[in-house]
Design a protein around this nucleic acid. Structure first.
Lengths: 193, 193
DNA sequence: CGGCTTGCATACGGTAACGTATGGACAACC
DNA sequence: GGTTGTCCATACGTTACCGTATGCAAGCCG
């Protein structure tokens, strides 16, 4: 074949680590860590694994970076979501309840579940999840305290809050969606004052 | 070698489908569906996969039976746990909250999580989970109604109840266990009247 | 221009699975 | 004591991965 570059074939842009990681996040959300294979990823990026092993030492190196980026992103996000003007704390709490189990956030939820499932069998993932949980609980606790609640009650409500939002994402969502929509407000009132 | 059967080698008991399924449940709890491979299972039972393919058509047949048994077991269990004497409904509710997220029930929880993760990628598993959820929610709802609550409130509390217990099992348990122990009562009080 | 570096392709050896085909041990039964 | 059915072992072909080795093109660089 004389043609080395066909029309419509865009001059190839070299991949970097970040492109691999972005693609990996996609696969993680869809298929979990178990489905995150080097060759599958390469096919999705239309290159061969030769490229992968140039950018990463091995599969584990990719997984480690995934974890690191997820952790940083989640912590940054929760700090942002819970940064409140004095007096706006309660509103922030309801916002968090709303956002973390919302249909708008499908992908984030899928990633969250994938990472948590991963954490059940991988110590590094478990450590990351534990750190993220601790940070989130602490942020929520502060907000509750700022609302005037006692420390133990603030802790208890934070725990209830996160258990609830993650638990919801475990229950087949579509099935209960309409009913849930009606009940959301009432439930949020049980979690936050 | 003349010895065809060594001392201490118990006369082999032929396996049946059920023995395979019991072993499969173990693996499911530990490694998830992804780790549930025919040859791994065979090694654990100290036979070869020749046996497996005598008892089952293929891997999918095992998975289907796993699902069916899990579904039957969970529905039977929730019916039993929520069968209340008149007047004992509230106690039953607190019992359910306690049992479903208790450290005594580790294995059950691990299986529950494995099945729910499975359901995210398998339609049959998703259908089973949906049925089990619907049954559980309905049982809880009945109890709340029997306690004198309105229908919507009973529904909302049921949803909160299950979201909470499953959500807890998603959060790294050991890390928060001591604190959680102190907060459990308060939280249960937010879920049930 | 010739050489170096980047980024990927190709080819290879190895492991772990799946499912199939076939044979054989052992017990039960006639 | 031969036949039959149960239950499993062995061997095979195939696929999907992992990680490595090596080749090769294209840009930059002196």
């Amino acid at each position: 074949m004389a043609m080395t570059r066909r029309r419509s074939e865009p001059a190839r842009i070299p991949l970097n680590r970040d492109a691999w990681i972005r693609a990996a996040v996609e696969v993680l959300a869809e298929d979990g860590v178990g489905g995150l294979r080097v060759e599958v990823l390469a096919k999705r990026l239309k290159v061969t694994k030769g490229s992968f092993y140039w950018h990463f030492r091995d599969r584990r190196a990719l997984l480690d970076e995934l974890l690191a980026q997820w952790k940083a992103g989640r912590i940054q996000d929760i700090l942002k979501q819970t940064a409140a003007q004095p007096g706006g704390e309660l509103e922030r709490i309801h916002h968090v309840i709303d956002v973390y189990a919302s249909a708008r956030n499908r992908k984030g939820i899928r990633i969250e579940l994938a990472v948590r499932d991963w954490a059940r069998r991988d110590a590094k993932a478990a450590a990351v999840v534990a750190e993220v949980d601790a940070t989130r609980l602490d942020c929520a606790r502060r907000l509750f305290v700022a609302c005037g609640l006692s420390d133990p009650e603030a802790s208890a409500r934070s725990m209830l809050l996160y258990a609830y939002v993650f638990g919801r994402s475990l229950m087949s969502y579509e099935r209960f969606a309409p009913e849930l929509e009606r009940l959301k407000g009432w439930i949020a009132g049980r979690i936050a004052p």
